[in-house]
């Protein structure tokens, strides 16, 4: 019984949150990695693109609510998602046409692209804050729990409760569908394959008659979809705050590089690697061990590997280790 309690405890505080957070990071990391693979630069404006997409979704959610439209037990945001995606695609394409295209034609260095993406980062930062403000916004509605701790305890008679929030399930399902569709697109369709081909060997892709403009257009569309979905899921699960979204760029970059920059499947795994490490290393295992030990211990120590304050630092540390020993990433990415 104690063993089951321990497992439930771990699931509740480590496994379920890690899967949720990992899915959100994975979606972001795939976006960053696709931009890197096709457009060949690290996009520092990506966190703010996620914020922009989420903001659009929130605005439409409010509009639907004021019109009395809702999805019942599901959050209204899911209904607003397609509209938010369309606006985000618009903004991405706008910046591509007005800014990135010029440097692409000039064949500028990756550093120039990074600097330009900083400019876009500032602009998006301002736009989001001007439109919706800098504060925390909770836009989750519908039912909050699939399984609540109290119900779980009553049903199973266990000491530990398992909480599964509906946002966690929504995150998981949405991410699964998105990734399934995306990887099928990349591996099965002609356009998807040509995208991979372009990312792998640009010159040969041109010699094969692949149209770079079409590839870039599709990449921005996919990236905008991923950014909006990833941002919205994160916002539903936690809350929306522009600054947090900017900060999330850092673990997303870490996940991207850990997975091998330019490699979408690697980025997917990278997201989970980062999420699991962050949560598992900062979790206090005191109670978990208490269940497993045959005797009771009075230790006041939390048996926590690293203080929760250093949550972000863990992803950076993993990144540093990867950079030193396997700069091409755990899963092979673009070779340096």
């Amino acid at each position: 019984m104690d063993f089951i309690n321990a497992i439930i405890l771990l699931s509740n505080f480590v496994i379920v949150p890690s899967i949720t957070y990992g899915s959100q990071l994975a979606l972001g990391a795939i976006g960053v990695t696709l931009i890197y693979g096709v457009l060949r630069f690290a996009n520092f404006a990506y966190g703010d693109l996620m914020a922009f997409g989420t903001m659009c979704v929130i605005l439409f959610t409010w509009l639907f609510k004021s019109l009395g439209i809702s999805l019942g037990i599901l959050p209204t945001a899911l209904l607003a998602l397609p509209l938010g995606i369309i606006l985000t695609i618009g903004v991405s394409l706008f910046f591509d046409r007005t800014v990135f295209k010029y440097y692409r034609n000039k064949k500028s260095s990756p550093v120039t692209f990074i600097v330009v993406s900083l400019g876009i980062m500032f602009v998006l930062n301002a736009v989001v804050r001007i439109i919706i403000g800098p504060n925390d916004i909770v836009f989750m509605d519908g039912s909050r729990f699939i399984i609540s701790a109290v119900d779980f305890k009553e049903t199973t008679g266990l000491l530990e409760g398992l909480t599964i929030k509906s946002t966690q399930v929504i995150t998981l399902i949405t991410t699964s569908i998105t990734c399934f569709v995306l990887f099928n697109f990349l591996n099965k369709t002609k356009t998807g394959k040509s995208m991979r081909a372009y990312s792998n060997n640009e010159d040969l892709a041109l010699l094969s008659g692949i149209d770079p403009n079409k590839i870039i257009l599709i990449t921005w569309i996919i990236v905008s979809i991923l950014a909006t979905i990833g941002g919205t899921l994160y916002g539903l699960d936690k809350s929306f705050k522009p600054f947090t979204y900017f900060n999330n760029l850092l673990p997303i970059f870490a996940a991207t590089i850990v997975g091998g920059i330019g490699n979408p499947l690697g980025a997917f795994y990278g997201g989970f690697v980062i999420a699991f490490s962050e949560i598992a290393l900062t979790y206090a295992y005191k109670k978990f061990i208490f269940y497993l030990l045959p005797f009771s211990s009075d230790s006041t120590n939390l048996i926590q590997y690293i203080s929760t304050d250093y949550k972000f630092a863990i992803s950076f540390a993993i990144l540093v280790v990867v950079l030193i020993f396997r700069p091409q990433g755990i899963f092979k990415g673009k070779v340096i």
Binding site: P110, V111, L250, F253, I257, A313, L319, V320, L323, P327
Partner: peptide, 14 residues
Amino acid sequence: SDYLAISTLLISGI
């Protein structure tokens, strides 16, 4: 260069 940019950003976070 782009790895340098990302990793310095992350280390400053630490």
